[in-house]
Design a protein around this nucleic acid. Structure first.
Lengths: 335, 335
DNA sequence: GAACTTTATGCAAACGTTTGCAATTATTTT
DNA sequence: AAAATAATTGCAAACGTTTGCATAAAGTTC
């Protein structure tokens, strides 16, 4: 369309002012008289001008970009398809945009192990949001130690030198388990891998609740996928029969996989086996029977993540923070 | 950690060569002797050096970034939560990474209406991938007309001056409907909004199949959400009773919403009502009964999208391309 | 109305790469 | 061994902003 790309200097010439004035005006610098600012902004819009971010970033040493890393465990089947993690990314995107920041979506494949280097030294981004603690916090710690502005979605109770925002997974696990116990379940299976940070907390909550009720724990350790859950419950049923009357699943997708296995064998939910998931994804409400779940307030979490990152970018400290959780009682468990 | 950020000039001094040599070496320019290249790369790694992308982009006028825009219809409830769209974004991310490109995740809120200006003139990205055609192609067309390298995930049969990669939605709609007819259904409801480009094609495929079979169409137009589908089917049942024996849903999430409404009323699936969805998301296999669906090969599509964008970046033309689809026959329909 | 403060603008030097061209060195040819 | 060619490397000029400092204009105070 434009045969030649307009630059700041051209705009300045058009307006009969210096480039510094235009630059300041477009950045809304109060050093420039209000009416001059408005006039120049108008002119810029009119000529379809937009600043060259490369030049701007080079000079100002600031990118206004935040890298979001989806931190999958390698060797796990939990994939880019996990609806919950993707939902969190979506919410973070909105929260960032609201602050005028952009989102560079990344993963360990691209970023390698040295995140400080890849993102910050290279001026790709000003800070990092990590979604998911994973099993091994080495990369996160290394980045934090290198002084990178960084926040993590994960379990906020984990000791760390970087802020973690997330649900109180221990309480969530305990709440879900107490709910199952209250419904009359005595033999409750924990379905998930306690080796994973957040899930481990949910597991300890589960243990605590069982302990109080003097019930016996039983864990079926699986990947965080519905397929693995389906197989896990199937195998358990084949091997030991219906030896349980409750399942506390580490996520909704996992719960739904288990639900399928139960339904296929005409095991009544919640009468024979009661079931509680975690996350409260859209499908929890749509499944039949609908799935009781621990709702995580991802929207609030995303806003907090961004706030805390912003604080760090301005040189302030930021603390980990727990997000409230809520048990959503649906048909899969006895209210 | 490092109290001072290393730059190319420092590295050059360390190695006793000029900055141009280091620059060329790190970019693997064959002008530099192989062993010098290797030595310098080694040195860079050892000193944890990484290029300043801002400077590099400014000078080379290339960003190696691709903007991905999730193109929601405004006024629609289809949201950032849609698991299918997010899955596509995930796959695109992988495909881009494989080519050494990075993904800037964006949406209409951030980018406004003038995408050429916001992304390209400002040197935020080299090209754009739009996920979803939406109801109104004005923004896409404007960008394409401005000469922006651009590809779209959508219905490839749509006439356009930009390449669209996607499934053959017409054939998909026809296939699904024929499958329902073959199972004995005669009164098949189309559940979805035909005003949306891709869904419209599915609808026309549905009509074609019905026409051949001399069956009568019936459309329930709803938003692309499971909640809307649940309500839509519920209202239909209340108003007219069980006046249908098949549902062709415009997406799996929609189909699952409908399924819930049916199950709640003890309408047998597939005996009373057979059901086919579209997308083949993970939940289709996990729901009970499992959901027959038209599988879209998103992985292949993503690779093609990236290839075609790359072609444009190199000044070559690229054409729209149809991706094969496949009917996945599960329990929700009579095979 | 001179001395001072406040407000508004311009000058010019960065920011850290990449790259056309020139210069040097090594290799081959005559 | 000189001349010609090929293989490496270095010089220095961009790329388009932002910003500290200097300057000019306007307003205030005594």
């Amino acid at each position: 369309m434009n045969n030649k790309q307009l630059k700041l200097a051209d705009l300045a010439k058009l307006a009969g002012v210096s480039t510094s004035t235009v630059s300041r005006a477009l950045n809304d610098n109060p050093l420039i008289k209000k009416e001059t600012r408005d006039k120049l902004k108008q002119l810029a819009k009119q000529h379809n001008f937009s600043l060259n971010t490369a030049a701007s970033r080079l000079r100002s040493q600031k990118t206004n970009v935040v890298a979001v890393i989806i931190n999958f465990d390698s060797g796990t089947e939990q994939s880019i398809n996990d609806p919950f993690l993707l939902k969190v990314v979506g919410e973070i995107n909105l929260a960032l945009n609201k602050q005028g920041l952009e989102l560079l979506l990344s993963n360990s494949f691209m970023a390698g192990d040295d995140w400080a280097n890849y993102f910050i030294n290279s001026r790709r981004a000003d800070g990092i949001i990590v979604v998911g603690q994973g099993k091994d916090p080495a990369n996160i710690e290394a980045a934090a130690n290198a002084g990178v502005p960084l926040v993590v979605w994960g379990d906020p109770k984990t000791p760390s030198n970087y802020p973690i925002v997330g649900s109180d997974n221990f309480v969530g696990g305990r709440l879900a388990t107490e709910h199952l116990l209250a419904g009359g379940a005595r033999n409750i299976v924990f379905l998930g891998d306690p080796g994973h940070a957040e899930i481990g907390e949910r597991y300890r909550g589960y243990l605590a609740a069982l302990n109080t009720a003097k019930a016996i724990p039983h864990v079926v350790s699986i990947d965080i996928t519905s397929g693995a859950a389906y197989q896990g419950i199937n195998q358990l049923l084949v091997a030991k029969g219906l030896c349980f009357d409750g399942i506390m699943a580490c996520s909704d997708m996992v719960a739904l996989g288990a639900m399928k296995a139960l339904k296929e064998r005409y095991i009544s939910i919640p009468n024979d086996v009661a079931l509680v998931g975690f996350d409260d994804i859209a499908m929890a409400d749509i499944s039949h029977p609908s799935l009781s779940s621990i709702k995580q307030n991802t929207q609030r979490a995303s806003v907090l993540l961004v706030d805390k990152l912003l604080a760090q970018l301005q040189g302030q400290a930021a603390e980990s923070q727990v997000i409230e959780i809520k048990l959503i009682n649906r048909q899969s468990s006895k209210g």
